[in-house]
Design a protein around this nucleic acid. Structure first.
Length: 351
DNA sequence: AGCATGAGGTGATCAAAATG
DNA sequence: CATTTTGATCACCTCATGCT
């Protein structure tokens, strides 16, 4: 199902469920570096009218939505030229599940999907439909090796090293990343096919869309790799316990909020994320951490370190890309602003 | 729960290309 | 030319998922 088909079906579903009419849709090409609005359209019911810029997504995940909402907020502030008609952003998807619906409604983000779920709120119009079942044809999923757990490891290494690592041999990459030789080819070719990587005239590999890959990586990391890395949730008794800890002595590094605090001095961290290689038992024991089953009752999470290079400038911290990813993955809107600061300062065209 | 299935991941092995 | 290095490919393994 392509983007046009999703839009058509979603508008049809809306028409069947409500008496809202959709005005003409115009394709617009706004090549902003962050967001890309595909269409402009108008919805109206009697005298209530609302202009929209349309953003089309397939099966958006919660992480994607959090990112989208945050970027959109900034975008509206920065974009006075095309927004002066009071246009809002309308998310159009093939399917938005109940959790995502609730999330979108809470953030005042209007959406419609192809099975009739919707949240709209303008003028006298208020529509909130949720719970409609996913379309049975689970939207052609082209499984890409690049964004599975091994692919994400390789990409992380590629993004964190100087760009000349791109042209190391598959065997070198396999060694550096701890990914099997057989996987490297699949992943590299996936990245080329998806337009993130290209070849120069003399067959050197080079980035074609590095920033786009970062965005894609962050989302896939939160969904595919991060859950597998979780070693446990813990509760520490003293507040600010982490300030006296030297993570190096546990072959560990800070991620998430603690690292963000170090990098930006902008965020006061309340939840600690720590990536460790092996000394989990020692770490837990010496710091008086108590294991708890749920994230909600924890204030520390311990994750398995999945890379093998050092971070020379700030050895106590994980690389900025991962700090950024941790903040995004937390889903905490409080962290999004800090995440953007880190992106701009450490990740955006920083090579 | 137990079972079957298949996608994802691995390392050995291949032929082509590079090296000298 | 012989040798080494490279990317591609293969059979096999594992583990998550879905079904009964």
């Amino acid at each position: 199902m392509n983007e046009n088909a999703i839009l058509d079906e979603a508008l049809l579903a809306l028409k069947n469920n409500t008496d809202i009419e959709s005005g003409k849709t115009n394709a617009i090409n706004k090549n902003g570096n962050e967001l890309h609005y595909d269409f402009a359209l108008t919805l109206k019911q009697r005298d209530a009218i609302q202009h929209y810029h349309v953003l089309i997504k397939q099966r958006p995940s919660l992480v994607q939505l959090a990112l989208l909402i945050d970027n959109d907020k900034e975008d509206i502030v920065n974009d006075t030229t095309t927004r002066n008609d009071g246009a809002k952003t309308l998310l159009v998807a093939d399917y938005v599940d109940t959790k995502a619906s609730e999330f979108l409604k809470n953030h005042q983000c209007h959406f419609i999907d192809s099975v009739g779920n919707a949240y709209l709120n303008f003028g006298s119009v208020f529509v909130y439909i949720t719970g409609n079942k996913a379309p049975k044809k689970p939207a052609e999923s082209k499984p890409s090796r690049a964004f599975q757990s091994t692919g994400l490891k390789l990409i992380f290494n590629l993004l964190c090293h100087p760009d000349d690592i791109l042209n190391r041999s598959y065997r070198d990459l396999s060694e550096i990343c701890g990914v099997s030789l057989g996987s490297i080819g699949w992943i590299i070719n996936d990245l080329k096919a998806a337009g993130y990587l290209s070849l120069t005239e003399n067959d050197q590999r080079k980035w074609a869309d590095r920033n786009g890959l970062i965005q894609r990586w962050v989302v896939a990391y939160a969904e595919k790799l991060r859950p597998k890395l979780l070693l446990g949730y813990y509760k520490s008794l003293q507040r600010d316990w982490y300030k006296t800890v030297d993570p190096k002595s546990f072959s560990a590094s800070w991620g998430g909020e603690v690292a963000a605090d170090h990098l930006t001095h902008y965020l006061k961290s309340e939840f600690s994320t720590i990536y460790t290689d092996e000394s989990l038992g020692k770490l837990v024991l010496l710091n008086g951490l108590k294991e708890v089953p749920e994230k909600s009752t924890a204030n520390v999470e311990v994750l398995q370190k999945f890379w093998h290079f050092d971070n020379p400038k700030t050895p106590d911290l994980v690389p900025p890309l991962l700090v950024y990813a941790d903040l995004i993955a937390s889903g905490d809107s409080r962290n999004m602003e800090t995440a953007n600061i880190i992106y701009r300062e450490f990740l955006d065209d920083h090579h």
